[in-house]
Simulated assay, not measured.
Amino acid sequence: MATQLWRTDALMRTLTVRRIRTRLGREELLRVRRGVYTAHPSDDDDELRALLLRLPSAAMLARQSAARRHGFGVLRDDLVHIQLPADVPKPRLPGLVVHHTVVPVRPVLVGGLPCVPAARCAVDLARAVRRIDALPVLDAALRSGAVTQEDLLAELTTHRALRGIRQARELVSLADGRAECRQESQIRLILIDGRLPSPEPQMWVYDRQGIPLYRLDLGYRERRVGIEYDGLSHLDRNRLRYDRERLNWLDANGWRMRYFTDRDLYRRPQYITATIRAALS
């Protein structure tokens, strides 16, 4: 059940300023943020609800903030992003990012908070953020089940002539909900941009009896080339033992594995492309 919140003007219909101050001193009232109060301890959702109480009624969570609510918040951002119609003045509050829009949209409630619909949120981000970050958003949106490919394609038609629509349209055609992390999506895009075939995300490798044995981050089945991103989880001792056992089996069965780290991904993407091109040839 959502915590009840009151704006100052609502409290002053029944309480004097002195009584409000007295209750605050006794902690019978708690200030969630300036101008918004509650009688109970608040959580992060209450903080957002308190913020929305201070904003125009048309405000709704958007971009990174809405993506987190919809289940595909792969882009880190501590700011609160909201969307408003183009004719509504922009509020100026700390930690708030306002996006004006000329494309009308009805909010959906997610956990009691008004949000831009999932498909609109995904396409807005695909238009606005860097290309290397946009594909992970679309992949995660599909993986979360919040949208389908058809939803994204339909949403593209409402964004015609808007900035970044060409990037969004191209990346929607590449989006794949099988990708399980941001880095997998980014490596896949680097290879596609390097004019290599798109690798298969989360590809199962089968033994001679057709039983699925190991799953690779990315792979080219016909060429028996596998790709793995080594993040922090691979430093775990038990995980290392499992990885070595898996690598030995794959090597013995004709697979050529290639491993990449954050240094390769973010500092030398051309190395990834060259390494996989050589493995495929």
Rank of each mutant, 00 (worst) to 15 (best):
R76L: 15
V88P: 09
L55N: 07
A67V: 02
I82P: 00
D77N: 15
L79V: 05
S65R: 04
A58W: 02
R69L: 04
L55D: 07
A66L: 03
I82D: 04
A59G: 11
P89A: 10
R63S: 05
V74D: 06
L79N: 07
P85F: 06
S57P: 13
S65Q: 05
S65V: 04
V88L: 11
P56H: 06
V74Y: 03
R54G: 15
R76F: 14
V80K: 05
Q64W: 11
A62P: 01
L75W: 11
G71K: 10
G73S: 08
L75I: 15
L61G: 02
R68Y: 09
A66D: 07
A86I: 05
D78H: 10
D87T: 15
A59C: 12
A58R: 07
A86S: 15
P89C: 09
M60C: 03
A86G: 14
R76Y: 14
S57R: 14
L79Q: 13
R76W: 13
V88D: 08
Q64M: 11
Q64A: 12
V88G: 10
V88I: 15
R76G: 12
R68K: 14
R63K: 13
A67L: 02
H81I: 04
P85A: 12
A67D: 02
L75Y: 12
L55H: 06
A86R: 14
H81C: 04
Q83L: 08
Q64H: 15
V88Y: 07
A58G: 08
A66C: 11
G73C: 06
V88C: 10
Q64V: 12
S57E: 15
I82A: 05
H81V: 03
L79W: 11
L55C: 03
A58F: 00
Q83R: 08
A66I: 00
L79A: 15
I82G: 00
H70I: 06
